[in-house]
Design a protein around this nucleic acid. Sequence first.
DNA 1: CTTGCAACTTGGAATCATTCCAACTCATTA
DNA 2: TAATGAGTTGGAATGATTCCAAGTTGCAAG
Lengths: 146, 146
Amino acid sequence: MIQNLNKHERESLHEALAKTGQKITPQREIVYTVLLAQRDHPTVDEVYHRALETMPGLSLATVYNCLETFVGCGLVRQVNHERESTRYCPNLAPHAHFRDESTGRVHDIELPKEILDQLAKILPANFETETIEISFQGRTKTSNKN
Amino acid sequence: MIQNLNKHERESLHEALAKTGQKITPQREIVYTVLLAQRDHPTVDEVYHRALETMPGLSLATVYNCLETFVGCGLVRQVNHERESTRYCPNLAPHAHFRDESTGRVHDIELPKEILDQLAKILPANFETETIEISFQGRTKTSNKN
DNA sequence: CTTGCAACTTGGAATCATTCCAACTCATTA
DNA sequence: TAATGAGTTGGAATGATTCCAAGTTGCAAG
């Protein structure tokens, strides 16, 4: 039910892992595949259950490990909302998140560079930013299928 | 060691609580006082320990309750960072947060209205925002005492 | 100033995401 | 072939937060 990684995707994975001296494993491939297959910001548990269908016996701890590894090598972003379970997102382009309160779903919002530039400017001079996170919360008006 | 609420502060508290049909209690006064006394975005536990000095016997559950109440009536904002303990902030002006990775401290960053306006514009038409959160993460260069 | 009751407080138990740990697997290197 | 080291695994541990049932209190109405 879940496609394998294509050549390009597998390469990104290899590359990102190699960069930090880490190995490709079947578990990592599957977890990464799951993330790419359905870009709905799944929780660890959701990733775990989706991955189980391809690799029964996979352990939850491993899913935690894989995702942490991916975040560490910049392949995947964490999305936190309040104290809910952490979600994961393989979209590497700069973007914000919109969380629909009524469904709990998270949508990516494209983030114009100019806004990031402006934001950088409001910081006092001695503040060095590494990451900026922007998250919206609200509702979508129509029944939206995205 | 901790000043009592002044007339104006006590009024805001009364007013905010009354608005939602809730009562003033000594516990709520103290928790609110603690928040105003030191605006360093304390965690529940920090609030708890500071409040204990004024009211020994206060329970942690009550601190959770009070803070939740304050958030509910708009008197206080929650500040979440990754999965760390939730912090609380009595600054009601629109502002972003900067988290210093090396100290864990959170600083308020004033947020120009124009940026909020621009952000509102990048959302698809059918997305209705209720809150926008912006948080920076990085380091402060100099030994900064704020 | 009393009374009545909903709202509040409290300590301890329960929850739940996440982390930790020690044993085991496996590919690679010496 | 043995040693090495990264990765995986299941179960136990952690820690913030929530839940709960019993006791207390603020305050509005009389």
